[in-house]
Computed example of a mutant assay.
Amino acid sequence: MSTGKGLIFLGPPGSGKGTQAQQLSKEFNIPHISTGEMLREAIAQQTPLGQKAQTYVDQGELVPDDLLLDLIEDRLNQEDAQEGWILDGFPRNVSQAEFLDKLLHKLDKFSPQAINLDVPDEVIIDRLLLRGRKDDNKETIRRRLDVYREKTQPVLDYYRQHDKLSSIDGNRELQEVTTSLKEVVT
């Protein structure tokens, strides 16, 4: 039967997912797993999966789902993830969410809980403009938010329909959001 904490952090860019995932990772002593970082690490270490991913990255293409899913399966089987984990940036679509459910069923360790950090667009725009990336302006940020919503809304609906979604108001002080997250998770 399922044990451990399998947390899936959802939310638009600038919602505080990464920051909150790091906080809870320390709090619960479970790894914060970012698919982007995992890909970069696998490529840097030239693992077999990393070498496959490299060919897509070199061509400027998205890494296909099946390769990402293999990476995630590999990562969730590592020793530090046996008591739980926080996935950040995955799943990004319903087929990835369905695969993750099948994988977790196979591993028989975790009952995942999806947490959506809800932050108004205007606050996100301000946060991302403060980050100061040179390619960030109001228009590009709004476009990224539109793309995020278009792609991720079905994932939110998927977890909502499976009774595995909690929404947290991410438009508060960092510690208040962390406290709310801990209440939802424990």
Score class of each variant (00 low, 15 high):
residue 148 Y to W: 06
residue 179 T to S: 09
residue 100 L to Y: 09
residue 146 D to M: 00
residue 101 D to I: 13
residue 94 V to D: 01
residue 108 D to W: 04
residue 129 L to Y: 08
residue 95 S to D: 11
residue 184 V to P: 06
residue 105 H to K: 15
residue 39 L to K: 02
residue 27 E to K: 14
residue 183 E to L: 14
residue 82 Q to R: 12
residue 4 G to Y: 09
residue 51 Q to S: 14
residue 115 I to A: 11
residue 121 D to Y: 03
residue 16 G to N: 11
residue 47 T to K: 01
residue 112 P to V: 09
residue 150 E to G: 00
residue 134 K to D: 14
residue 155 V to K: 05
residue 121 D to I: 01
residue 60 G to E: 12
residue 46 Q to T: 03
residue 11 G to L: 03
residue 119 V to H: 12
residue 162 H to T: 13
residue 1 M to D: 15
residue 88 D to T: 11
residue 84 G to R: 09
residue 76 L to P: 05
residue 151 K to C: 01
residue 137 N to R: 11
residue 166 S to C: 06
residue 36 G to E: 03
residue 13 P to E: 06
residue 99 F to K: 15
residue 184 V to L: 02
residue 171 N to E: 08
residue 58 D to L: 14
residue 121 D to Q: 15
residue 40 R to Q: 06
residue 185 V to M: 00
residue 47 T to M: 12
residue 68 L to Y: 01
residue 98 E to H: 11
residue 89 G to S: 13
residue 22 Q to I: 09
residue 24 L to Q: 10
residue 105 H to F: 13
residue 181 L to H: 05
residue 10 L to N: 02
residue 104 L to M: 14
residue 11 G to W: 03
residue 42 A to F: 04
residue 18 G to W: 03
residue 10 L to E: 00
residue 69 L to R: 07
residue 87 L to N: 05
residue 85 W to I: 04
residue 161 Q to L: 13
residue 35 T to K: 10
residue 152 T to I: 12
residue 69 L to W: 11
residue 155 V to F: 05
residue 122 E to G: 05
residue 110 F to Q: 08
residue 8 I to R: 02
residue 151 K to Q: 15
residue 154 P to L: 05
residue 183 E to P: 03
residue 81 A to F: 12
residue 175 Q to D: 14
residue 32 H to W: 01
residue 65 D to R: 10
residue 33 I to Y: 00
residue 76 L to V: 13
residue 75 R to N: 03
residue 103 L to Q: 13
residue 138 K to E: 15
residue 119 V to Q: 11
residue 44 A to N: 14
residue 98 E to M: 10
